[in-house]
Amino acid sequence: MASPNMQIARNARTRVADRVTSKVTDALKSDTAFESGSLALSARIAGAAAEAVLELPAEARRTLTRRQAELVRGVRRLVETFGDERGRRKIELIVPETVERSVGEGLGPIVPEEEGKHLLNELAVARKIEDWAGTVAGASELNRDYGIPRSTLHRWQHANEVIGLLKGTKKHVFPVEQFIDGRPALGISAVIGLAGSHRTAWLWLRQANPVLGGRRPIDLLKQDRIEEVIETAQAYFDPQ
């Protein structure tokens, strides 16, 4: 026979879904984006998820915490699958009795490498690095404005702990946005390793990411949400 304490704990867990559902409903009922039906459904889903998490062993909860970005994507995909109407009317396509065969224009003649580079240069549009990378600064500016020693910056760059972008032929500049409290945000080295280059990594870090709720990965790194960003980067750069 279960002890009174065990029975109390069990009853508390069985009521957690109702409590969470009620709190979510109260929190969102003034939000005009939710209709009554969608509000009730969203609250019920939140309550069921909270109860399921509560019943997991501590180790399983820690694992989910590390993989919460993947979990959120999975929950979203599961909900979206119920949006497919089984009886939805299909678009009827009229297939002609005869089909004209076409092979297209093909790739065109192969040109020598030098000529190809010349043609690409004619099509390329020059852009300032600040146009896509944001505010950047050289080693001297970082030392003057942020007190970052050149030797420290060089060590970070050598260890791939900071994003360094080549400006011109030799000079490297560093996006200022990646720094917090005088040092690069933690997790940048992992993103560089997954992206394969500093330029690609910084382009990805600065773009709003739908998997992260429309937020930019660099902003989350600066909030110490490192594991969430790295998991998202792994799914993007190494989907295998």
Rank of each mutant, 00 (worst) to 15 (best):
L205N: 00
E92C: 09
Q207S: 11
L166N: 05
E80Q: 10
G213I: 00
L120K: 03
V99M: 10
E227C: 01
T25P: 03
A201E: 06
A208H: 02
D84Q: 12
D219W: 10
K23Y: 11
R13L: 08
W204F: 04
R62K: 15
F179H: 07
R89N: 07
A233P: 04
V16F: 00
D181Y: 08
R88Y: 05
L194M: 10
T25K: 12
R150C: 07
W202D: 00
A33V: 02
P175R: 08
K128H: 07
A9W: 02
R206E: 03
D181A: 08
L220H: 07
A9C: 07
R77T: 15
R10K: 09
I129V: 10
G74Y: 03
E114M: 04
L107C: 06
R44C: 11
L203C: 05
V16P: 00
I45T: 06
G193Q: 03
T200C: 14
R44N: 10
V75R: 04
R67F: 03
E100T: 14
P184D: 08
R73N: 12
A17I: 07
H158G: 09
P217T: 13
L212D: 10
P57R: 06
N5H: 04
W132D: 09
K117W: 11
E114H: 03
R62T: 14
A124M: 13
E115Q: 03
I226L: 08
R10V: 00
T232E: 15
T32E: 14
Q157T: 14
L107N: 13
D145W: 02
R150G: 08
V103E: 15
R67S: 15
V176C: 05
I180Q: 13
G214Q: 03
R101L: 14
D145A: 08
H198M: 00
A233I: 01
A124C: 01
A27D: 15
L28N: 10
E114G: 00
W156G: 04
E130W: 10
K23Q: 14
E177Q: 07
G108Y: 01
K170M: 04
E59F: 05
A12D: 08
W202G: 00
A208Y: 03
A17Q: 03
L186D: 13
R225A: 12
A9K: 14
V99S: 02
K167I: 10
L64R: 06
F174G: 09
L78A: 15
L93E: 07
A60I: 02
T32D: 04
P184K: 03
E92M: 10
E35Q: 12
I129A: 13
I8K: 14
K90Q: 14
E100C: 07
S36K: 15
P109W: 06
L186S: 14
R183V: 02
R199K: 11
Q223W: 06
E35V: 15
A2M: 13
R67M: 06
I94R: 11
R44E: 11
V75S: 02
R216D: 10
A69V: 01
